[in-house]
Amino acid sequence: MTRPASKGAWFDPIFEGLCFGAATLLLVALAGVVVSLTIGGWPALSHFGLSFFTSTTWNPVTEVYGAAGPIVGTLVTSALALLIALPVALGVSIFLVEFCPKQLSRPIAVAVELLAGIPSIVYGMWGLFVLAPFFAEHIQLPLMMNAPAGSIWETLFYGVPNGANIFTASLILAIMILPYMAAVFRELFLTVPPQVRESAYGIGCTPLEVITSVVLPYVRGGAIGVVMLGLGRALGETMAVTFIIGNAHGLPKSLFDSGSTLASTIANEFTEATGEMHTAALTALGLVLFVITFGVLAIARLLLLRQRYD
């Protein structure tokens, strides 16, 4: 006796195929990004060769393009942003998990998570209209005035005192990635089993010792992953930076000098590109940005993956 096939069974392989196709579409999308950036940027890369990465000249009039300025600008602002945001984010998440009263900890955690979702353009506007003028008047000018002549401080603080510079851009980036990093750190710390923590307290550790010798080592891989994710965000962030970095090509000469990043240069110039080579050079910047962020994100995911599916 044969069993009658259940109604609708014919659709099973088709449904699985559809799901498979949708999943593969993700692969196609990412491959498409790489291929299109490579094809679009190839004319500039082949024309300028290695000097595209080492030259600081970016001149649409003479059609000479070198990406060293934006590349350095991107790396410097992201590194500075991470340097500012990391200790604060760690402090916030440790405070929320370990020390904060329960009634307060939940609302603050939710608020932090919600703030992580605020669009970057809002941060950018705040940077341009509130932070930059305040910074120029109350921090940059006094520092410039009081820097001892000939010292390293004079070089470091040199710049047009309008508040649009590498440092304020890094500050905005730091404020932007802070809630995100704090939220993920908090989730990570919550994965530490209470028994581990309690046994440390049980042998007389202070909270500081519990954190440094039990909690942090327990989540080490994941924590580095979170740092990488924050770095990835900072590297690719466009709008917040474009508003406030000053958009000058070339290498930044001081902390308060205006500069540019890969993303801000693309955002500023792409629609007004003067010719084929200009567009190609901007697309090549995109490719450079992709390679950098892909590397950082890949490391982050590999480290976090272990945490997620263990």
Binding site: L26, S36, L37, G40, G236, L289, L297, L305
Partner: peptide, 23 residues
């Protein structure tokens, strides 16, 4: 696929703009 999805999740959005421009 899961790995690539996580990368796409955090990829700079401006690159998606460049891709769609070409596409």
């Amino acid at each position: 696929i899961r790995f690539l999805n996580d990368v796409l999740l955090a990829a700079p959005s401006i690159l998606v703009g460049l891709f769609v421009y070409e596409l």
